[in-house]
Nucleic acid binder design. Sequence first.
DNA 1: ATCTATCGTTCACAATTCTGAACGAACGGG
DNA 2: CCCGTTCGTTCAGAATTGTGAACGATAGAT
Lengths: 298, 298
Amino acid sequence: MRWTIDDVPVFLAVVDQKGVTAAARTLGMPKSTVSKALGRLEEALGLRLIERNSRNLRITSEGETFYRQAVLIMEQVREADAAMAGLNAVPAGRLVAALPPALCQELVAPNLASFRTRYPSVELDLIVTSHGVDLLRDQVDIAVVVGPQADSDLISRTLYSGPLIWVASPGYLAANPLGNDTDDLLAHIRICEKRYGLARLPVRVDGEPAYMDLARRITHVNDPISVRAAVLGGFGITLLPELYCRGQLRRGELTRVAEHITLDLSASVLSVVYPGRRLMSPKTRAFLDFLDEVVAKR
Amino acid sequence: MRWTIDDVPVFLAVVDQKGVTAAARTLGMPKSTVSKALGRLEEALGLRLIERNSRNLRITSEGETFYRQAVLIMEQVREADAAMAGLNAVPAGRLVAALPPALCQELVAPNLASFRTRYPSVELDLIVTSHGVDLLRDQVDIAVVVGPQADSDLISRTLYSGPLIWVASPGYLAANPLGNDTDDLLAHIRICEKRYGLARLPVRVDGEPAYMDLARRITHVNDPISVRAAVLGGFGITLLPELYCRGQLRRGELTRVAEHITLDLSASVLSVVYPGRRLMSPKTRAFLDFLDEVVAKR
DNA sequence: ATCTATCGTTCACAATTCTGAACGAACGGG
DNA sequence: CCCGTTCGTTCAGAATTGTGAACGATAGAT
């Protein structure tokens, strides 16, 4: 097959409008372009579709046969165009998102009803994972990952970057009075999130740079919710993103301590990774906005 | 709609072959062309159809939606291509031919069974007419016209150019002996075909150029068969294309006379007119060949 | 960790298509 | 019959697309 499918609507227009000039007007293109396209189609098919001179034209019987086929082709093309226009206008279709467990359990899952209400045509596939995600290999549209993300073809940006706070249960504190120096704090840390379990965790003590060793003799878990559950059960003091402690703090289930020892906001960063901003589908945009909202929610 | 339909098979190939390079091989085009076409389609649709890096690709859900539509489009395109290829391979379809009555009655009609046997898929529409034909305005594929045809965009060529002969019925001749000079011949002419009814019809008498006046006192008819019928009925001597007298001469119903007075072959010319030889449909070619055959038949 | 092979993309030039202008043809009005 | 208008086609230059070569990225083997 050697004919140009894009010449089909040109041919249809010439027949429908009964002339090259009228077809050109309808199509919004020069008549020399129409003449050329029609001639090219006839040459490629090896058949005259339209007999014509400078004043008259008539469709040949071959032209009639092709006309019937051409109408069906363009109907199909319009259907495809409408379907894609629909996808481009309203968020719809399946979206696969890989999320860390904590983010999913604490912030995303509790708000899914709201997302569904707002975007009834988006079908979410959530993958809770704590290891890295390859969008291509794992067939994922969006991924939220713990920590900053290296530059790549994929877009990544900070979804969350907020305060880390030291917390303990009131019961633990009543039974284990806390002194004021860093060593005393360190003595009470039994468990922490894996990403803070460093031999030299950079901190600020009263604004001064310092390091804390959370590597040895401390349980490390790559799930802040598990860390929180342990501390709620009296397992010492720990460092947690304020993001995951709001409710417990409000209800008095956890208490902030050692507020003079702080960490950089970037230490708690969650990154969201997705394909380039260009050609972003509406559903992807919608889910990104949704993530921004649930993270910002107080 | 601003996407290029010709990019659709490229997209389908990339998905089916799972890669730009493999698709390029299948399509027989450079991979940069494939990459460009795919990117152009995505840009025009405003949606990513395929997520990809240098080693992996996966179709997006938008891509899946478009894929389903694209498959239907290309099915339709293939159907159209097959229909047109069929038309280009085997003579088929309606053919409208305008023919002079004599040619049609005497040569074409008696042989139509043979034509149909040979080309069962060609549907003939024969228009018997004795006036000029405009292929475009009269919606005619081929026309046979009496006399030569002026040059034009249409192709015309001589279909028939043969001897004109003087004939009379034996009964008439028995009752009206014919002398040998031209004036005597002239005295016996009562009727002739309109195109020979000239005041100065160029003839050759024993090879010498001369003129005969067939304009006055002679009945003119633009149908050689009517002229023949009259002469068969004893209405004098007339001039007829040998083409239309073969059977009658063979059966002794007509007799040749004045064989020393001849006319130029071109005087009896029948021209066939049809659109340019380029892009001639098989059915047109078939009918032209058929006309050549019936005219050459003895 | 390094190297090699292969992929998809991009750039700059080659190739092709688009199109404005001009032309010949056709048709209707005077 | 002549003239003016409009049509479809064609040409030459403008514009766009195609594509070979080069590049950065990826993945598998060592």
